[in-house]
Each structure stands twice: as structure tokens, then as C-alpha cells.
Amino acid sequence: MADSPEEIYKSIKKIKIVGLLLGVFTIATVLLSFWELPTHSLNILVGMILATFKAGLVALIFMHLNHESKMIYKILAFTIALAFALFFLFVFSAHDPLVFSGLYDSNQ
């Protein structure tokens, strides 16, 4: 945490630059969405990577996660692991790679 005045002045500068960067990346996301990539999934992927990058900037610089106490990292690591479990298992349940098509399937 920036506590001395010089450090705070420095961080103000950083904040402004990051704010600008976020704006630029937002414009990029919008433009990208109108540019059709080979598949729409690819569009989604690139869009989400950009969004994640932006979110990372907000979390690291604005929420000063780049220098936070260990305890917070532990809590967040745990949370994010669970949130990801939530995402991926839902997807698996829609596309089951182990479906047994059956002995009597006439197409085989």
C-alpha cells in the first residue's frame, strides 16, 4: 500500500494510465466482436481473453492485488478454484465424453 506522498503521486499516475488502457481495450473488444473469425466460438474465446485481461488489470492495479497480504491470496485462490469447478462441471454435464452408445445401436 502506498503510504508516502511520493508513492501516492506515483500511483495516481499509474491509475490514470490503467484507466486509459481499459478504455482502449474496451474499444478493441467492441471492434473485435464485429470482425468475424472462422468460428463464433473463436470470437467468444478472444473476447473472453480480452475481458479477462481487463479484469486482471482492475484486480491487480485498482484493487491492488499485486501487493496484498498472503491471507487474501489464500482466500481468493480457494474461491476461484471453486468458481471454476462450478463452470467446468456444468459444461461437462452437457457434453458427456463417456456416453455409451449401446450394443444394439443400429448405426454401428
Binding site: 467492441v30 479484469a55 482492475v58
Partner: peptide, 13 residues
């Protein structure tokens, strides 16, 4: 941060 994800998911992609 939430909005950063919401915007592309709902408006763009």
C-alpha cells in the same frame, strides 16, 4: 469487474 465480463457476454458475443 463484473460489468467487464457482462458487457461482452451479453452485448457483443
Amino acid at each position: 469487474l463484473v460489468w467487464i465480463f457482462l458487457f461482452p457476454l451479453l452485448y457483443l458475443l
